[in-house]
Every structure is written in structure tokens, then in C-alpha cells.
Design a protein around this nucleic acid. Structure first.
Lengths: 210, 210
DNA sequence: GTCTATAATTAGATAGAC
DNA sequence: GTCTATCTAATTATAGAC
């Protein structure tokens, strides 16, 4: 059977390669220029494909965007799993420290996700509501739950839990999301020493009682 | 003499009003949708003007963008001046505390500037280099200078100065820059109590020895 | 699945009457 | 200064040959 599988379960190597390259090119363009600023022609060219192949492999520019975001979210989940590996999931302080460190390291390695979220978070629209409903809400709730726990333990900085999510993500990721700006200012956001110092400082600032 | 003054020194009230409305509409649109996503037609409509008036009062979409950003930067400077009023400019710890608080309050009241900077900071281009060269570089340097001073005094969190700028701006402004996202998550970024708690928490986290 | 050609829409900018 | 009409270029999406 060499016939291509239908839907997303395709096995054919050639088409998988194109889909793959299109997603990779798309997430870079969406991150750099925002949804409106990214053109499907530019994305296709970057993937060494033709523009109509986007509408063949994905229904629309919008679906391509979703596929790109979901790839990034999967990678973030994998990074977070690595960083929390072996930690007692009920040890909220240890889990939070690992989560904070994981967020910094992921933002440094794959700044595209934070870039896309900062682009989309500035205006209410279907992409933002899709993001929140499908991917952000439970992460937010999990973070708040753990924060309330460590606050009760006296380990946390005096920060209302409603503020935590954005303060943490902003502090962890802006340096990498806006890496082009940082470089113009003389900072090297790719330095492993800087990234590690960043992660450690953020943990000690948010969990000073640890 | 009822003839209109030339260049930017115009006195005519009618034209000043249009310029003013166009700038206000433009900064809202650029902040919400990014430079590419904002259309001059939409901006003109929001300002109750016609699209060609943008090219009459400004040379181009690009110049309109600059005018909008400069208005926001002027407002930020005014807010920072209020917050640092009466403080000894050589008292670096007190100045930094006031600057941190001022940044949080300004981001909450006028999130457009941080939104625009987050949009532009994701890719290297003429607008970003203009921002850095003309407005960001000296602010960055001032912040680093003061941070090194309070670090020597043992007042600061253990944070390399190269990280400070983006960590501080991200922690101070993402909640307001991405206010639509925060609202979907059940947070109210307009609450005065939340804003004040945010400012105080950030000061105590960054300057624990104070 | 790929590729060329193109449809349908919208973008920023300009010409010229008033 | 304002406003209508329009130019040129770019956009996403589709049709149809291969």
C-alpha cells in the first residue's frame, strides 16, 4: 500500500516533509512579523515550496498558524517534562522552581512561542480565544494553584496569584522574545551563562523562602 | 495672519485636531494589530477622517507610526518625572524603586507603548533600530548604571545587569500589554489595587535589601 | 501532490477638483 | 486642508493541467 493515508495520519514521506518545512517556516515568520505581517508567499518560499501548497496541506493561513502554534506547545510541554522529571508533583515549591527554570530555558531556545503569544495577546480575536480556551487556561490555573500553596507555606514572594502568570512569563521570556532588540542593546540572549543566571535569579526572586 | 504655519509648528486648530485624532487612532491600532496589521484606512475611519489625510498630514504610514510612538514616549517621560519627583537623583535605590513603580503604573494606564515595542522587538528592521538608537539606548544605559550601583550596595537581587532591562520591563508590562489575554483568564488588569500590589511586589523582589 | 495562472480583495500612496 | 477617484502592488485562495 503506497496510497497516502487520509487526513493527518499520512505516512507518505514526501508530503510529510513539505508539511514539516511549511510549519517550521510558518512559526518563524508568524513569530517575527505577527499573523498579518507574515505572508504565505514568504513562508512557502522559506520552505522551498509553492504558495498554493499551503492551501493544499492546510485549509488556510489560519490553520497553518494553529499547526505552527501546536508544534511549539508540544515542544514546550516536552521541555517542561524534562525540567520537572523526578520531582514529586506534590512538592509545589520544587515543582514551581522547576517550572520557572523550564520556562526561561524554553523561551531562550525557542522564543517563537512567546513571540506569537505577545503578538496575539494585544487584541481580542478568534486566535487569542482559541489559544486561551485550548492551551492557556489550564496552565494558568495550575500555576495559580501551586502559587497559592507555596504562598501558604511562606515560601513565595508577596505576589497576588492573579499577577503571577504574566509577571513570570514576562520576566522569563521578554529577553528572548525581543532578542533582536536585546542584541542592538549589546546583550547576548544566546549566552548559556546568562540564561542560567537568568533562571536562577528568577527562582530566587519568586521563591525567596526556599 | 490666518495662514497656516509651515511644518510641525502649525497653529491652525482644525488641522491640529485632525493630526491629533490620527495619532491617537494610530497608536491604538499599531498597538493592537502591529505595524503590518494596522491599516491606514481603519486608522483614518477611527479618527473620523479620510485615508489620504494621513499622507497629507504625515509623509507616510511609517511617519505616522513614528509620531504615534513619540507621543507615547513623551507621556511615559511625564509619568516617570511624576514618580521620581522630589527624589535625590543620586540616591540610586530610591530612584530605581520609583522607576520600577512608574513603569508598572504607566504600562497599566497606557499599555500601547509596551505593545508596540513587543511587536517591533521580535524582528530586526528599520523601526526597531530607530527605536533603539533614538529612545531606548540611553534608558537602558541609565538603568544598568543604577543597577550596578545598588548591586554594589548589596540592595539588589542577584541579577546580572544585562538581564535587568528585559526582566523588569517584561515583569512590569506584560500583564497590561496582553490585557485582552489576561481578561480571558479572569484577571482584571484595570484594578487599582492589583496595579499597586504589582508595583510594590516588583520593587520588593528587585530591591529586597531596601 | 505539484505547479502555473489567475481570481478577488485589499493595501499605501497619489492626482486633481474644490 | 478636504475629499473622491484611482493607480500600482501585494495579499489569500482557487482552478485546472500534469
Amino acid at each position: 500500500m503506497t496510497a497516502p493515508a487520509k487526513g493527518r495520519l499520512r505516512v507518505n514521506r514526501g508530503s510529510l516533509d513539505v508539511r514539516d518545512r511549511l510549519i517550521e517556516a510558518a512559526l518563524a515568520e508568524f513569530a517575527a512579523r505577527g499573523y498579518d505581517g507574515a505572508s504565505t508567499r514568504t513562508i512557502a518560499a522559506k520552505a522551498e515550496a509553492h504558495q498554493p501548497q499551503i492551501n493544499y496541506h492546510f485549509q488556510s493561513k489560519d490553520e497553518l498558524w494553529r499547526a505552527a502554534v501546536e508544534r511549539l506547545l508540544d515542544e514546550m510541554a516536552a521541555t517542561m517534562a524534562e525540567h520537572t522529571e523526578g520531582i514529586d508533583r506534590h512538592d509545589d515549591a520544587a515543582m514551581l522552581a522547576a517550572i520557572i527554570g523550564g520556562l526561561v530555558h524554553f523561551a531562550a531556545r525557542r522564543p517563537e512561542l512567546n513571540r506569537i503569544m505577545m503578538h496575539e495577546g494585544t487584541t481580542l480575536g478568534p486566535r487569542l480565544t482559541w489559544l486561551v480556551d485550548n492551551h492557556l487556561e489550564w496552565r494558568f490555573a495550575d500555576l495559580v494553584y501551586r502559587w497559592d500553596a507555596v504562598t501558604a507555606l511562606g515560601v513565595a514572594a508577596p505576589l497576588p496569584s492573579g499577577i503571577l502568570y504574566h509577571l513570570l512569563l514576562g520576566a522569563a521570556s521578554l529577553l528572548y522574545a525581543n532578542a533582536p532588540e536585546a542584541r542592538l542593546l549589546g546583550v547576548d540572549p544566546d549566552s548559556p551563562e546568562l540564561i542560567e543566571a537568568h533562571a536562577e535569579a528568577l527562582v530566587s526572586m519568586l521563591l525567596p523562602g526556599r
